[in-house]
Amino acid sequence: MQLDEYDKKIVALLVEDARQSVSDIARQVNLSRSAVTDRIKRMEEKGHITGYHAHINCASALSVSAYFSITFRPLSCELIQPYINALPEIKLAHSISGDVDLVLLVEASSMSRLNEIRSDMDQWPNVAKVVTHMCLSSRLERI
């Protein structure tokens, strides 16, 4: 199913603020409330909209964030999936192309916890290299 221009506008408004009312969205896209409600329901059912989330200000939560780029020899992303699933601090995990096999975003409560997670990664199967990229500031979040 392709999204039309109305669907794209609705999704953009929900990404900006998922708590706004259907009436507000309807006014902004120039459709009726029922049409917007039907479109949102259809996009949810088809998997285009997968959820609604609250985002916290990481700086106010006193947490630290880092991206970890991991290279395996031999490739074994499937083998480490249980390790990824077991760590709630891992917020994103993407298999990617190129010299690096996997990129993880980790948000930890402290630098020492982040270091523990980093040390654990060395014990994962077939890990050849882990590079840590500390997040210094957030410029944009649309997730």
Rank of each mutant, 00 (worst) to 15 (best):
S76V: 01
H53E: 14
A66Q: 05
L104P: 05
I117L: 02
S23H: 08
N30Y: 09
I25L: 06
S76W: 05
I49R: 03
Y6M: 13
A93P: 00
S97V: 06
E107R: 07
R113V: 03
V131E: 11
M43D: 03
F68P: 00
A54V: 13
A59D: 12
L13R: 02
E141D: 11
V64R: 04
A12G: 10
T50D: 10
S23P: 06
L14P: 04
A66G: 06
Y6K: 13
R118N: 12
S112D: 13
Y52L: 07
I96W: 04
A26I: 06
M134S: 13
A35C: 11
R42T: 02
S112I: 06
K91G: 03
S34M: 15
R19C: 09
A59M: 10
L87V: 14
L14S: 05
M43I: 00
I25D: 04
I70W: 03
D17P: 01
S119E: 09
I117Q: 02
K129T: 06
L114G: 00
L136E: 10
R42K: 12
I80F: 00
M111K: 15
W124R: 01
I56H: 15
M121S: 00
N85W: 13
D24Q: 13
S109C: 11
D4I: 02
Y6Q: 11
R42H: 06
V131T: 12
V100N: 08
V11H: 05
A93F: 02
I80V: 08
I49Y: 02
K41A: 14
I84H: 01
G51K: 05
N57E: 10
D17N: 08
R142F: 15
